[in-house]
Every structure is written in C-alpha cells, then in structure tokens.
Design a protein around this nucleic acid. Structure first.
Length: 487
RNA sequence: GGCGGCGUAGCCAAGCGGUAAGGCAGAGGUCUGCAAAACCUUUAUACGGCGGUUCAAUCCCGCCCGCCGCCUCCA
C-alpha cells in the first residue's frame, strides 16, 4: 500500500519524509547487544521498535538490508569469564544463545546479517589504520585514540557543545589521551586479557569501532537509517559517526532513530540499578502459552509511542491483556463467520487499511494503529454478535484484511483462537496452569452439568467455585457444553 | 553546569493552531437459573500553573512548579 513514511530524525530533531538513497532498498543498522548477560525488557522494547519498522518497510514493498551487531568482545565479558574461570567463548556462546531465544520468543524477524565483533577484527584494524593515516587518530601509551577535536561535526548528533561535555572530563588512570574528550579505538593488550595482533600493537578494539566497521562492510559508507536506544545517542552513536565520517568523508547515517526507555516506578530499567526484568523470566513467569505472552508483551509496548518512556506496571500489563483479549474475541468470531470466503479475495485497500498504514507511516504511531483496530472491532462486533443483523457498518472482509495486516506489521493477532482462550502452558511444554489434571477437570464439569440438569443450582455453583479456585472458569453456552477457560 | 524528554479523565495513552482518538477500570442495560463471556449505552466546558501571540492554543512563545533521562558501561 502506498504511504509516505516519515520518521523523527534525532540528527535534525524533526520528522522527515523517509527516502532511501537507492530506490526500493533500505540500508538499516541497529545496535544489538553486548553478550555478557541475559537480555531484559529494555532490550525487548528496543528490538520490538525496530522490528516494527522493519516489518513496515517490508509491508510497503521495500527491500530491507537490515544489519544488527553482536558485541562479543568487551570488558564486562572479560570480567565475567574471569570470575567464572571459563573461556570468553563460553560466556559469549551462552548469551548469544540466550539472546537468540529471546528474539524468537518475542517474534522479532531476523535481520539479514548479524555479525559479531570478533569476526571483523581485520576490518576494524584497517579502519583504525586509516584514521591514523588521516591524523584523526593517534597512538598513546599502547592505545589508539580518536582525536575528537579533529572532527568538525562532533556533537552535532547529540547536540552537545564540546566545551560543556563532562564526559571526557575524566581521564582514567593509565590513559594517555591528548584531550579528555578523545575516545579509545584500540586498547593495548594487558596481561591476562585476550588480545589480537595489529600493526599498532596487539590489543582489542574499543566499543564504537565495531559498528563503523561492520556497517561499512555490509552496507557501505552511508546508511539510510541507524537505530538504537536513547542511551546510545551519546557517546556511542556520536563516536561512531565521528570515526566513520572521518574515515570515509561521507555521511554515515541519514536518519538516526532512538527509542525511549522501559522504566519501573518511573526509573530507567538498567543493569547497574538492578531493577531489570529479564525477557526470559517474563515468559517463564507468564501464566499463558508463549505465543500469547509474546502478543501480550508486544501489545503492551506498542501501546506507547516508541520515543516515550514506558513504565512497566502490573496495571498496564493487565489492561493490555484485556484489550488484546477483546481483539482476539472479535477476530475469532469474524474469521469463523467469513470461513467460506477465501482470504485471497479480501480487499487490498480501504479506509481502515489506509488509516492503519498511515498511523504506522507517521513516525511509527503504533498507539493510533491499535486504536484503528479497536475502532474496527467496535463497528463489526454488533454484526458479529447478532446473526440476523443486516448490513454491517464496515466491510467485514476489510476488517479481516486489517487483522492480517496487524499480524504482519505488529506481530499481534496471530495466535490461533483455540490457544488464545483455552490454552495453558501444558500445551506449550511449560508448567500446567492449574493444579487439577484434565481428568479431574472433566469430572467436575460433568458433575456440575448433572447438577444443573437436576436444577440443583447450589451444588452446581459450588462445583463452579471449586474450579474457579483452581484457575478454571466456565462459560456456559446456549445448548452445548460450557467453554473452559484458564486464567 | 550543559543537552533533552515528560506532565491530557480513576489508570494507560494519541493528538500538537480550529474547538479533546483509543484502551483499561467504573456505572446502567441485553443475555443467563445465577454467573461468566459477549454485545449495547455511558464516563474530560477540557489538556501542571501563570502570562503572552492569535479571530481562535492542549497544541506557538516566555516564566514557574513537578517528575525523568543523557553527559561513565547501558536498549
């Protein structure tokens, strides 16, 4: 569907129409993770934001060359390995696996390339060499530093004035920087630490250089879009930009996007504060099957615009689940009603589809996109719930197409109805949602049915209460046996 | 100290110059043996405060108050 995508660019601090350099192809780079621990919900949101953007690009027919790095050489990894007394590779393998599992659980579409820093040492060394030749970098005390004041545009991305920066105001003991603002490109080897040979002395790369080297390798000197969390804006992205542009003389990234934080009690969720919630734990603690939990979390995050903060609360989570339940209920009834009509002939265009796409195209306004879904639901529901009703106020087939569109772009409304309402973890290889065995449940349900037939409502209600206490809710249906729902 | 974000109904959350989307919760109703679920109806003279610009401001400007973030590793 033809829409003009506009995105907020951190560089210009305004929304701009998004136009890739090459017609029909998007070169997109997003900062991944450093693999020294399990990922938390902050990572989940960030990846979800850029996944949604990725899906939006695909939906509009663009080819997306999406690269996301994995940082597998870093001080924290080294320290963790040393503490555990295991090789670095064991730590990185463990957390790369964990990250991959988390991304799969969240339903994040895989990027085209997912390079690891250690696979690109020679590219990084070449880049540093080039910066040294250009005079943008210098050797000092076994390290190599980037000379920040040699790069005119430094600070333009994060809108910092060099003189006001406190960042570099500290020089760590042992560092030999010319200027406090300078940052390390290559750290000289220290005893007992992993190191790699380089013309300027063996050692290991600084944090920022990997992104420059890997994006250059896969996507060339100029990215259409570079993304990451708000906390990467400075210094990470500022540094990446400086060293890349100093080396290539070209614009490094045309659009920069930064997502807001996940907070708890209005405070940023971060590892150093110890207030993180791991993705894995969220899924393991969830009473629902994985597919349901995935949609639940996605819906929760998508309910807030990506640039704002999201406070992670039980109330917010509960509201998200209830709202999603309503959408699923509608979807299940609608799909059943339209079963005989092939989806292939559903409309490709229409006011609902248009509104939905326009919302997403407008700097990824997912809250508005969700409201389009709810709007469609409330207009189609009366028709769905009364079989004798006349013409529906909206084309049911467009609503079906809309739900499919939401499935593709937002990654919600894809779980089969049977799993959504009646599912529990046992169907999913997890723990059971109830203390009762299926046989016990069936026995209680049948007993209640007998009691109801005998008009012994007191006993019937007691049995229903007993089931409810075990997390089983009965929903009587006209004619048939009651529907069993787990809570 | 520098840079930035936020403050909209009980809660969450869009809108960002033309007179307040949506969701959750709540209330009333339909259905039901009673429930539950579902469906219907309903819920902000009003957008932190005070000024200013304008025919018109929640949206622009100024000041103030309150939260939060970046400037050190961090999505």
């Amino acid at each position: 569907m033809a829409v003009t995508i506009s995105l907020y660019n951190s560089l210009s601090r305004q929304s701009e129409p998004f136009r890739p350099q090459e017609e029909g192809v998007v070169k997109m780079y997003v900062c991944g993770v450093t693999v020294y621990d399990d990922c938390h919900l902050g990572h989940a949101r960030s990846q979800m934001v850029f996944d949604t953007l990725h899906r939006l690009f695909l939906e509009t027919g663009l080819t997306v060359r999406y690269v996301r790095n994995i940082t597998d050489i870093d001080d924290k990894i080294i320290r963790k390995a040393a503490e555990a007394g295991v090789p670095i590779e064991e730590i990185t393998r463990t957390y790369i696996d964990s990250f991959s599992r988390d991304m799969a659980r969240l339903g994040i579409l895989p990027p085209l390339h997912e390079p690891r820093a250690t696979e690109f040492l020679s590219s990084m060394i070449a880049l540093i060499d080039r910066l040294l030749q250009l005079g943008a970098a210098y050797r000092a005390g076994g390290d190599v530093y980037f000379r920040v004041r040699s790069f005119d545009g430094y600070g333009a991305l994060s809108h910092q004035v060099l003189g006001e920066l406190r960042s570099g105001a500290r020089i760590e003991p042992g560092e030999a920087k010319e200027d406090p603002l300078d940052f390390v490109l290559w750290k000289g080897a220290k005893p007992g630490e992993p190191c790699y040979p380089a013309p300027f002395g063996s050692g290991r790369p600084g944090w920022h250089i990997e992104c420059s080297a890997m994006s250059l390798h896969y996507l060339g000197p100029t990215l259409d879009l570079h993304g990451g969390g708000m906390d990467l804006l400075f210094p990470h992205h500022e540094n990446e930009r400086a060293q890349s542009e100093a080396a290539t003389g070209k614009t490094f990234a045309r659009t920069w996007m930064h997502n807001g934080f996940v907070t708890t009690s209005q405070t940023k969720m971060s590892k150093s504060l110890g207030n993180t919630r791991r993705i894995r734990a969220f899924f393991e603690d969830s009473p629902f099957p994985e597919a349901v939990t995935r949609e639940w979390l996605r819906y929760f995050f998508l309910g807030t615009h990506y640039r704002g903060p999201v406070d992670f609360t039980d109330g917010g989570l509960a509201a998200a689940k209830n709202a999603l339940d309503g959408l699923h209920q509608c979807r299940a009834l609608l799909f059943e009603r339209l079963l005989s009509l092939p989806e292939e002939t559903d409309p490709r265009e229409g006011p609902l589809l248009q509104s939905f796409m326009e919302a997403l195209a407008s700097d990824l306004d997912t809250p508005v996109a969700l409201s389009v879904l709810h709007g469609a639901k409330s207009r189609i529901n009366p028709w769905l719930s009364s079989p004798t009703a006349g013409d529906p106020p909206v084309d049911p087939r467009e609503v079906r197409a809309l739900f499919r569109l939401a499935e593709r772009t937002l990654g919600i409304l894809s779980t089969p109805a049977s799993l959504w309402v009646g599912g529990d973890k046992s169907e999913n290889g997890g723990k059971a949602g109830s203390e009762l065995t299926p046989e016990e449940i069936e026995r209680l349900v049948l007993s209640r049915e007998e009691a109801r037939k005998a008009k012994d409502f007191k006993r019937a209600d007691a049995l229903r209460d007993e089931l409810r206490a075990a997390g089983i809710v009965l929903e009587d249906q006209p004619g048939g046996s009651p529907r069993i729902r787990r809570i």
